[in-house]
Design a protein around this nucleic acid. Structure first.
Lengths: 165, 165
DNA sequence: CTGAACCTTTACGTAAACGGTAAGGTCTGG
DNA sequence: CCAGACCTTACCGTTTACGTAAAGGTTCAG
């Protein structure tokens, strides 16, 4: 998005190349289009889907959200705003020669990215909370271990009930 | 697991209480049993499922892995080792009065927890990588913004091609 | 100009992760 | 003793996220 219009974008990829490039299947890519996650930048004369670098980036991001972060496609859709809006914004940006408007559009893009980052940070924090809890359980077991080891040296009293000596 | 046998565990919960306690549905809990994620500690005379605190903890952990970390139940199964093994280990621990064996069992428990922590850390790192990439995109847009702002003060040259002036 | 390798849409199939309901047994207060 | 609130198993239905195949058009090397 907002790629600087350095004359003509040189290269458009067909779906299979995109699949190879992104590690997705062609089916998944078509499916993502079906549910409104992204539309190819263009269609060839024969209606072949043609993807540009922006699309590639978006697809890689989607894949990361799905595989690495474990978001559902519905969540990803929310995170990325709907494709119709994306296309609209992009058109307006390319069409506009009004500096103020272009500035506003890019600004909004930054705001969206900030929300995405915040969402990802939230996820990281939730997992880190789980890690801390797991570490607590670990410490508990560690103490248990120490307790077992203590029994051998301490008075071999028949049976105790607390962990406190 | 490895709860110190401080006389008799006092309280066993029925499935609905467990659901309320863990935020899961009874259906999910039964489903998790079906696919071998956990078996209730006991069954009542009338075959009611009865859960102890260990089960509660395990269920909460499962829920965290599912909701917070976004793991599939298959992944969760791997992370938690299969339930049959868990029951076996637990029995052996409760039965054993051999200090060395108990020590070994607890040690293995710690090793398993360490693997869980490592898995969670791996996930955090993958998401953090995504955050860094997103920040890179953000910076790119930020630069774009600066470029737009520069145009107003700089020579209003008709059209440029690079981002370098 | 042809056949292999692409692409298209359409449509049916499937695994995962449950939801819902039926048909029946259990438990507890009034 | 019985109504209401639990519980059981069993089974069918649903959504998500695709896989797979059919029937046909396109592109290109030989």
């Amino acid at each position: 998005m907002f790629s600087t219009p350095t004359e003509a974008s040189p290269r458009l990829l067909r779906i299979q190349e995109v699949a190879a490039e992104t590690g997705l299947t062609t089916r998944s890519i078509r499916y993502y289009e079906e549910i409104g996650l992204l539309k190819p930048a263009a269609r060839s004369e024969a209606a072949y889907r043609l993807y540009d670098v922006d699309d590639l980036e978006r697809l890689r991001f989607i894949r990361g959200l799905r595989d690495d972060a474990g978001f559902s496609l519905a969540e990803i859709g929310q995170l990325l705003e709907d494709e119709a809006a994306r296309v609209r914004i992009r058109e307006r940006f390319r069409a506009s020669h009004d500096r103020a408007e272009r500035r506003a559009l890019v600004s909004d893009g930054i705001a969206r990215i900030d929300r995405q980052i915040a969402t990802l940070r939230g996820k990281v924090e939730r997992i880190e909370a789980m890690i801390r809890e797991t570490e607590t359980r670990r410490a508990h077991l560690e103490g248990h271990l120490a307790e077992i080891d203590a029994e051998v040296t301490a008075t071999p009293a028949p049976a105790r009930r607390g962990s406190r000596r």
